[in-house]
């Protein structure tokens, strides 16, 4: 097998043009006398090209969805829009660069209505297909003057906690005492987005968005604190402003109100784009509230 492995490496080098003139000439000389090597070369080239073809499939399938969506929109005129997830579930879509393609969560949004007015008769519910954008980032938590702060670099002497330790956006450690000086987390942040060509962007990027949430959320001052998740849905309109923020999954009224307040007071985003034009984009963000010693309670709406 050793020998075959080396042969394969050799063919790879040849196909990549990584050989110098002498090596190349020698290899081409071998090709004329070794038909087996010739076959190996052709097969390996086909497989490499096949891989390139396979890698294009997700983009082709995704564009088909967009094409269909664009075609139906005009005559449905804002009535119910249902996107059929026809794209084959492929491995490529789970690659880091394509992570947002993975799970599809559908959420039926109530018919749009202007505040106080009667909804238009043809305005039915709208189904939004979400793609999950999981930002995995390693951040460190530092306790300073009784306050937790998030930093990108590992602080000197920081005690590294397990990967699974959940970091609370509210800035309170999930585990441990206030004696800890550092806490490393590999934090998945599932932000669900409506599929768009260019994603909307928080000023400074996703980690800045995360830092913003952490810094802004204040735990409601309750005699009996809760732990749990509040999921907020909101739209970043074509101007980059937050619109129609609402609770998708609530915990209890004070927590819900706090989550909404933080989302509504966000700075302007860079709006999503399709074909170079800014377009609105619907997002959903789960926000975790953790209080030490309090188990996740049932979500009280």
């Amino acid at each position: 097998m050793r020998n075959e492995l080396e042969l394969l490496e050799l063919v790879d080098r040849y196909l990549e043009g990584a050989m110098d003139a002498t090596e190349r000439a020698a290899f081409e000389q071998r090709l004329t006398t070794e038909p087996e090597l010739n076959v190996l070369l052709l097969d390996q080239r086909s497989l490499r090209e096949g891989l390139e073809r396979l890698a294009l499939r997700p983009a082709v399938a995704k564009a088909y969805q967009a094409h269909r969506f664009g075609k139906w929109k005009p005559w449905l005129g804002g009535a119910s829009l249902v996107i059929i997830a026809a794209a084959g579930w492929s491995l490529w879509e789970r690659m880091p660069r394509e992570v947002h393609e993975e799970p599809v969560i559908e959420h039926v949004e109530p018919a749009p209505s202007d505040a106080g007015s009667v909804p238009a008769p043809d305005a039915g519910p709208r189904t939004i297909r979400y793609e999950v954008d999981t930002i995995i980032d390693t951040v460190y938590r530092v306790l300073e003057n009784g306050k937790w702060r998030t930093v990108k670099e590992r602080p000197e002497g920081a005690q590294v906690m397990s990967d699974s330790t959940t970091l609370s956006p509210a800035g309170r450690p999930t585990t441990g005492s206030s004696k800890e000086i550092g806490l490393a987390t590999r934090t998945p942040l599932p932000l669900r987005m409506e599929p768009v060509e260019t994603k909307p962007e928080f000023p400074g990027g996703m980690s800045a968005f995360y830092t913003y949430l952490e810094a802004s959320i204040k735990h409601p001052d309750l005699t009996k604190p809760l732990s749990g998740t509040v999921e907020v849905g909101f739209t970043i309109n074509a101007e980059g402003q937050v619109e129609s923020a609402e609770i998708v999954k609530g915990l209890n009224p004070p927590y819900n109100a706090e989550a909404l307040r933080v989302i509504r007071s966000m700075p302007r985003w860079k709006p999503a784009e399709t074909d170079g034009k800014p377009v609105p984009c619907r997002l959903q963000m789960p926000m975790q509230f953790r209080n030490p010693g309090v188990e996740d309670g049932p979500g009280l709406k």
Binding site: L47, E49, G50, L51, L54, W92
Partner: peptide, 21 residues
């Protein structure tokens, strides 16, 4: 020919395809 190779690759396990890609 490349499309046949593409079909062949599709029959591989996920991890294999991942490594190659």
């Amino acid at each position: 020919e490349y499309s046949v190779a593409e079909k062949a690759l599709k029959t591989l396990g996920e991890k294999c395809l991942d490594v190659l890609k």
